[in-house]
Design a protein around this nucleic acid. Sequence first.
DNA 1: TGAAATGTTGGGGCG
DNA 2: ACGCCCCAACATTTC
Length: 463
Amino acid sequence: MPPVIVWFRQDLRLADNPALTHAVATGAPVLALYVLDDETPGDWRLGGASRWWLHESLQALSGDLAEIGGSLILRRGAAASVVAALAREIGATAVFWNRCYEPYAVERDKRLKADLTGAGLVAASFNASLLTEPWEVRTGAGTPFKVYTPFWRALRALPDSGKPLPAPKRVTPFPGEVATDRLADWGLLPHEPDWAGGLRETWTPGEAGARRRLTRFLKHLEGYRAARDRPDDADGTSRLSPHLHFGEISPRQVRHAVQTGEHGGDGDKFLSELGWREFSYHLLFHNPALPEAPLDAKFARFPWTGSAEMFKAWGKGRTGYPIVDAGMRQLWHTGYMHNRVRMIAASFLIKHLGIDWRRGEAWFWDTLVDADLANNAASWQWVAGCGADAAPFFRIFNPVLQGEKFDPDGAYVRRWVPELAGLPDKFIHKPWLAPPKNYPEPIVDLAEGRERALAAFKGLPRS
DNA sequence: TGAAATGTTGGGGCG
DNA sequence: ACGCCCCAACATTTC
């Protein structure tokens, strides 16, 4: 019997994987494939932290597949031609995959599907990454949503897809020999220097790690509404974002676990955060330029004023504002930043420093293990005030007040900015009042930065 | 999923 | 007893 191919992409799991389940159900030998693609035009080439995660996750997936009789073939190149070439090479009759929603991926996959079908193969794609396809939710007028709340209400009104799929117990192995790259040769791991130590301490990529993270978080769901804003509380948020991005767990599995368990009353609040993820994908799908251009056109000529030195200080966590610097250093060390602090650090970059949100977007893309085109672009536009249903531009976070409000004991700051660890609580978010050694003076005056930002905003065209 | 400026209210000190 | 002022606390408006 001729084989079928499962092309893995952002769905690095066995459970609730419709493409894999479908392939197994054909009864044919299954060959699993992953393609490292740094060539497709329009692609946002994977960032450094994402590459580390990908390496670990592929290793986990490869092991998990081996346990049920499968094997993972690794190839490198322009993905569509690599997939088509492998299909010819092994005489496959079908290729199955789960959908991606990045604009370049949509184009590429559409063309590949046509090519494969034209060559007489079956090509079928599935939804594994979203609760609902971006084109399935529409306003009453038939247009895509621009506002989050009605979007989420509409999505929740749709029928639930029900129980997630179980992992296949067994796949029919492909009998022949197929050439595969060695994962180690892909150079995904950093070397000289090896900066991934903090990532290894913090994360367990792979499907099993994702499931453990979810199980642990569900125990803390009660009280989520308040705890989620506390960066000093390591269990306050789920930290599922990188697992969700790489598809080591699906949003349907998460929703199902939250809805069927005996958890506290904050489950809906948590699910609404999955809703923001869905909304970001919806926005990206209907606005392919989201990562590059402000949705609100009047921001296209925003007068950015920040200097290269300021951007550098921000990236290194040396702005002189403790909550910002703590966040940027947590990011550098662990590939992650608490959501509340992401908003503060992003607002500071855009408003107080006057630096284009796309610089911040690119920095996060390279350093976050959960770097995700839709979430990253939509969130930066949200903070910058130029996105859909965005925070108004004049909503400017004051890093001192935010620090005092959400890290009142300074525990988060002390953890990530050790040179401030000895300061008394009353100075922890205003260290310039008791200048410690080796910590920079503020690189911008908060009132001045704010005034300049508001003046620049006022100077924009009417709308 | 703000902050700062401005406005209002009410209690207490005091002439 | 009364009006006046001060100011903290809270509410509203504006950016």
